[in-house]
Design a protein around this nucleic acid. Structure first.
Lengths: 191, 191
DNA sequence: GTCTATAGAAAGATAGAC
DNA sequence: GTCTATCTTTCTATAGAC
């Protein structure tokens, strides 16, 4: 046995990435306050002290998680404006079309918005990653106001889905998705 | 000096009430996780140990706060169905019509929904104090689904108002209120 | 580069004096 | 009925050994 049987080689980049992924999953599901550095370190298979070494603090870690979650959010914008409501509602509620990745930044923002330290970061993230591109995509009068209301509706749905416990009756998905789709579409289409 | 100069007479009912009011204000503004028993006790002018004596635990205190906030929420339901959207939107956003009391249970539910222990209580409170009476008030097909979506929109607006920092441009209130009013009214009027 | 050990603060809750 | 004192736990963050 030449090399010791370590489960993880001494690789700073890989360790940093493992921490970041574990943190994203935890923050996404439980929110900033509810997650301890020990839990994240445990998921990543490293010691909690390493997190502060690599990211400075819990806040720094959260900021990096937000920054690394900023690529995928707006794939729902790639599409026809007339079907915007359907697409987003499906991404939010439809269990068949809902992946852990889609709408991830909405979940992340919603579940961590209670903490004063996290909400500062969440605010600027929502603004730069959702409000700004969405406003540009709309490109019409009151686009910014429409963007803010859309964000509010999506966060409210995400928040209430959590509270509901994730077990609304199965056959309600269709009617709920339709209703949400109509509301979102009406915000976009309104003068 | 016959009686000692105590700021508070030894009165269990008054003390209990003072704690309850202080707790409501704190939970309403900061959320369940962010508020410590010592802060509540300080506001109420009593010792933190009394809270556990009177309410058993922090969770018990929060439950009693929710129960004592269940009277005022639905005064917005007293009115014409055609102007429902306007009334609720004004209560949520209009600074002139917005009192700390109105929509208090929405703020309370939104800001405390992140905590697992509080969200259990928040869920049943929303259901019994909002969904059930609102569904009955609607009284039509899909009333329950409309009620859930309405609650989601209101919570989203409350949540995003917090995050925004409470300083959107002054002249945006009017257009934001109109837009929210239209969205709420469309949910109510939808088939 | 990673871990052990621990500092330092703050939380909820309880026992018992007054 | 109220408060002082304290227990216990949990958290972030750091210092230093390996």
């Amino acid at each position: 046995m030449i090399a010791p049987a370590r489960s993880r080689p001494r690789n700073a980049a890989a360790t940093r990435s493992a921490i970041l992924n574990a943190a994203r999953s935890r923050f996404l599901l439980e929110g900033y306050d509810q997650v301890g550095l020990r839990a994240i370190a445990g998921d990543a298979g490293v010691d909690a002290a390493l997190i502060c070494r690599y990211f400075g603090s819990k806040e720094g870690l959260f900021a990096d998680v937000l920054a690394s979650t900023s690529k995928d959010p707006m794939d729902v914008l790639a599409g026809d404006r007339a079907t915007f409501g359907r697409r987003v509602a499906a991404a939010m509620l439809d269990p068949s079309k809902r992946s852990p990745e889609r709408m991830a930044f909405i979940q992340l923002a919603t579940r961590s918005s209670a903490s004063p330290v996290a909400s500062k970061l969440v605010r600027s993230h929502i603004e730069s990653q959702f409000i700004v591109p969405f406003t540009a995509w709309l490109g019409d009068r009151c686009a910014a106001e429409k963007a803010w209301l859309t964000a509010a509706v999506l966060m409210g749905v995400a928040l209430l889905s959590d509270i509901e416990g994730g077990h609304p009756s199965q056959n309600r998905y269709a009617t709920d998705t339709d209703r949400l789709a109509r509301s979102l579409q009406e915000i976009v289409d309104s003068p």
